[in-house]
């Protein structure tokens, strides 16, 4: 579907090229993978544009110019930490304050990149590091999902990243430029788009009672930490609790088998 759309009338048909040279077949496979990644990320782009607009609008109220908001989205590309930075923004900006906050909010990326790193057999060493720089939550989740059913390729990953990155940066700049003209996203329920996406993904990772133990530990620890500890420690606390639950239930099973 996407291929016919992209071909203009003047270009020769694809099968003509493929039948003569083998590398054209590879090119075609890569294009198919890239388009597959784009298709997979499409629903999340519909969800990220409103969030990007809101980020830009909030940044504008904190005194950031559209150029500064765009620069932050381009270089940081991590929505959660960008919103937290806006929460604690000062004039002049404190690089140590927002830098440490970003480290704390994004510490989960260490786990995410360790996990996805084991699925990157199809990547060269440099491609791996380059790809990881774009490891936003949504990109990571879709890539993990893909790796369960097929070999994750650089082209497929690039298909995820390119449109999502572009949408995040452009919507951030637009939000900063439009500012107060935008409606309240809370009334429209758009702030709920991402939690909803994550819930759908959590449901997809269900593998049985073991997953239940992980989810319960992670959820309980996250809620308790968020209640008692200010800031964003709850994400790291929940992730570690889920990890511990997996190890404990795994080793208990091992003992049962042994005895």
């Amino acid at each position: 579907m996407g291929v016919t759309f992209l071909q203009d009338a003047s270009s020769p048909p694809a099968y003509d090229l493929c039948s003569h040279r083998s590398f054209d077949v590879n090119e075609n496979a890569r294009l198919q993978d890239f388009l597959g990644g784009m298709r997979a990320i499409a629903p999340l782009i519909a969800a990220v544009v409103p969030i990007g607009l809101v980020f830009g609008a909030v940044a504008a109220t904190k005194g950031l110019t559209p150029a500064e908001a765009g620069l932050m989205s381009t270089l940081v590309f991590a929505g959660g930490s960008q919103f937290v930075a806006m929460d604690i923004w000062t004039h002049p900006a404190s690089w140590a304050g927002v830098g440490f906050a970003a480290l704390l909010v994004n510490i989960r990326h260490v786990l995410m990149s360790a996990s996805l790193g084991t699925r990157m057999g199809g990547f060269g060493p440099r491609e791996r590091y380059l790809a990881m720089l774009f490891l936003a939550d949504e990109i990571w989740a879709m890539a993990e999902f893909r790796a369960k059913v097929a070999r994750l390729t650089p082209a497929w990953f690039a298909g995820l990243v390119a449109p999502f990155y572009l949408a995040w940066v452009v919507s951030g700049i637009a939000g900063a430029a439009l500012g107060a003209f935008l409606g309240d996203p809370v009334v429209l329920g758009l702030d709920f788009a991402f939690p909803a996406v994550f819930i759908v993904l959590v449901m997809g990772f269900w593998k049985g009672p073991e997953t239940g133990a992980v989810l319960f530990a992670s959820g309980a620890a996250a809620v308790a930490t968020q209640h008692f500890v200010p800031g964003v420690w709850y994400i790291a606390a929940g992730a570690v609790a889920g990890l511990v639950a997996a190890v404990v239930s795994g080793s208990r099973r091992g003992v049962e088998v042994a005895s």
Partner: peptide
């Protein structure tokens, strides 16, 4: 990454996703 460590790595995706959404979902 052998044995139980492998198991732990595989539990990361649901653990992280749940930690992010749990306060929204429950509190």
């Amino acid at each position: 990454l052998e044995g139980s460590r492998r198991k732990a790595i595989e539990s990361i995706p649901p653990a992280v996703l749940m930690a992010v959404v749990a306060p929204t979902a429950l509190a």
